[in-house]
């Protein structure tokens, strides 16, 4: 047994302070009546009121949500299929190429991905808008889904699916009824990851969007380039709260699920 030690405790305290203080400050100042960061003008929700009257920002938020939902769904299907192929196919043609294309977008600088997709859309003569952003987002998000699902699939006991086949289920049925429910948490995590990645992306969306398809990060970016804006702080706080609630629910659900699993054994 090793002792946790004061050094480790200090590392954790400073580490998490560094990670969370900037976010906390941002949240606090979204309730500041004064526009200045250093002056506390009293508690106020006026920036939230202004936010909900900002039609441009709301339209961009709607656009972003729509892109993110479609992206997450497409990326989850494609990414799960890619994960199955990479984990199970023993003789995958051009495996290295496929593997390379699946992992490279995880680290590829966004400016390169954005530029290359834009040039493709121009070469094909496609008008830029909702679908070009969605296709671009799906392309990099599917790789994240593939990695998440693949790590679950490698640990998966194949004999379960084979048993279903022995009992006469078709390959598709065996997969959908046996494997899919068991890897569902990873698939759901993949969907959420793809959703947030899409919702968050500025660079790739800037390259692939057209007139009338401005996303939320693009609006936020053009607002904050000129300095601190309390209205954007308010928008950020809402986004952060949504994410925090989502992550906590997921963590609790996973914990609850694990407890139920151990109890049933």
């Amino acid at each position: 047994m090793t002792r946790f030690g004061w050094l480790n405790a200090v590392s954790l305290t400073f580490g998490f302070a560094f990670l969370y203080l900037p976010i906390l400050i941002l949240v606090i100042y979204s309730f500041n009546a004064s526009k200045l960061v250093t002056v506390w003008g009293g508690f106020s929700t006026k920036w939230y009121v202004a936010l909900f009257q900002n039609a441009q920002l709301l339209a961009a938020a709607k656009m972003s949500l729509l892109v993110a939902v479609v992206t997450a769904t497409l990326a989850t299907v494609l990414g799960t299929l890619a994960a199955i192929a990479l984990t199970r196919a023993r003789r995958l043609p051009a495996r290295t190429l496929f593997q390379g294309m699946t992992y490279a977008p995880l680290v590829m600088p966004e400016v390169i991905t954005g530029l290359s997709l834009l040039l493709l859309f121009v070469a094909l003569g496609i008008d830029r808008g909702f679908w070009t952003i969605t296709i671009a987002h799906t392309t990099f998000a599917l790789c994240f889904v593939a990695v998440v699902v693949q790590s679950r699939l490698t640990a998966f006991d194949m004999s379960l699916e084979e048993a279903a086949r022995d009992l006469g289920a078709s390959p598709v049925k065996a997969f959908c009824l046996v494997t899919l429910p068991l890897i569902a948490p990873a698939v759901a995590a993949g969907w959420l990851l793809a959703f947030t990645l899409s919702l968050d992306d500025l660079v790739i969306a800037s390259f692939t969007s057209g007139p009338g398809s401005t996303t939320l990060p693009m609006r936020i970016f053009s607002a904050v380039r000129l300095g601190v804006s309390p209205e954007i702080n308010a928008a950020s706080t809402i986004l952060i709260a949504a994410v925090a609630i989502g992550v906590m629910t997921a963590t609790l659900a996973a914990k609850w699920g694990a407890r139920r699993e151990t109890r049933s054994q």
Partner: peptide
């Protein structure tokens, strides 16, 4: 069980069209 190579076809084609070919255009 589910034919893995066949299943991989869709993401494979997607990545070829939207990841590899764009680089050649660049």
């Amino acid at each position: 069980v589910l034919n893995a190579s066949f299943v991989g076809l869709l993401p494979y084609v997607w990545l070829l069209v939207f990841f590899l070919i764009p680089f050649l255009i660049v």
